[in-house]
């Protein structure tokens, strides 16, 4: 099921590392306030998959995504990412592993008052020494990776603009470039299009599908709109109250499946609409 396209440009260094698989065994996440995010989840995701994770807010999909890069620690169970024990990693080792996992957020999480380039170079911090970081003296290769990542999402022209001056869709593309600059084995996206209008949402989802297909990177996307989940994912995982209630191919998931995941009838509010989500070319 891996989709490393043979026509990946030779110059594009943004997939230097091989895609990573994810293995969760009996994973439990319990927050300090007693709330249970994940209830004994076991899950295998193969390298190169494009997975849509759906569920209502509070279903545990954010916990699942944040567990995979260690932003949320496991209370019990094990997590292997690319063959490395993420749940045991601490300090330098944890940062090294996180450096291989890109993350995209609903709110973009860019530092608005600095340039697009500086934001994308955040993706190179795991490979940059602290003295170099403090003065912003990145190596030429790291800058080159940042430029290539921006080029891939069509934002190279804005490289010296301030991030806050960009539109929401442009900011999310810069955030995708930041993740790509990491040369990641996995890209995690937590509700990446929930703050965007429908055409921009399709464009950003198209970008995520493209990095999965062209670079072969494993992509996990949290979504709550079922047409996006069906149209862009190859595999669909449904979460409800911290448990996996659906796991299967995305394209054939029926409305009844979604009603089981959501625990209520499906309505218009569960669809984004707009451009057809059929797997065609990416809009410019």
């Amino acid at each position: 099921m891996t989709r490393i396209s043979p026509e990946t440009p030779a110059g594009a260094a943004t997939a230097a590392s091989a895609p990573w698989s994810i293995r969760l065994r009996d994973a439990v996440v319990r927050y300090p306030n007693g709330v249970v995010g994940l209830k004994k989840i076991s899950l295998d995701i193969e390298a190169g998959e494009m997975v849509s994770i759906v569920g209502l807010s509070g279903s545990g999909k954010s916990s699942l995504i944040r567990t995979i890069n260690g932003l949320v620690p496991l209370s019990s169970g094990t997590l292997e990412v690319g063959g490395h024990r993420m749940d045991l990693a601490r300090g330098r080792e944890l940062r090294r592993l996180r450096g291989q996992i890109g993350m995209i957020f609903q709110g973009f999480n860019l530092a608005g008052r600095t340039t697009v380039l500086n934001n994308v170079l955040v993706g190179r911090l795991a490979h940059t020494s602290v003295p170099r970081t403090l003065v912003g003296a990145y190596r030429q290769r790291d800058r080159q990776l940042a430029f290539e990542a921006l080029d891939r999402v069509g934002m190279l022209e804005r490289v010296y603009h301030r991030a806050a001056h960009l539109s929401g869709g442009q900011q999310q593309r810069v955030a995708i470039a930041r993740a790509l600059a990491q040369e990641p084995g996995i890209v995690l996206a937590d509700e990446p299009v929930a703050s965007l209008d429908p055409p921009t949402a399709h464009a950003v989802m198209g970008d995520l599908r493209r990095i999965n297909r062209e670079l072969g990177i494993t992509v996990l996307v949290n979504l709550h709109l079922l047409d996006l989940a069906r149209g862009y994912g190859t595999r669909l995982i449904g979460l409800r109250a911290g448990e996996i209630v659906y796991d299967g191919p995305a394209a054939t998931a029926t409305d009844a499946d979604f009603e089981r995941i959501y625990g209520r009838p499906i309505g218009d509010q569960d669809l984004l609409g707009g451009q057809s989500a059929a797997p065609t070319g990416t809009p410019a």
């Binding site: 932003l71 940062r95 090294r96 996180r98 999480n109 860019l110 795991a126 930041r178 993740a179």
Partner: peptide, 8 residues
């Protein structure tokens, strides 16, 4: 959070 997630 973004810097932490990128391994900073």
């Amino acid at each position: 959070e973004a810097v932490k997630a990128a391994g900073g």
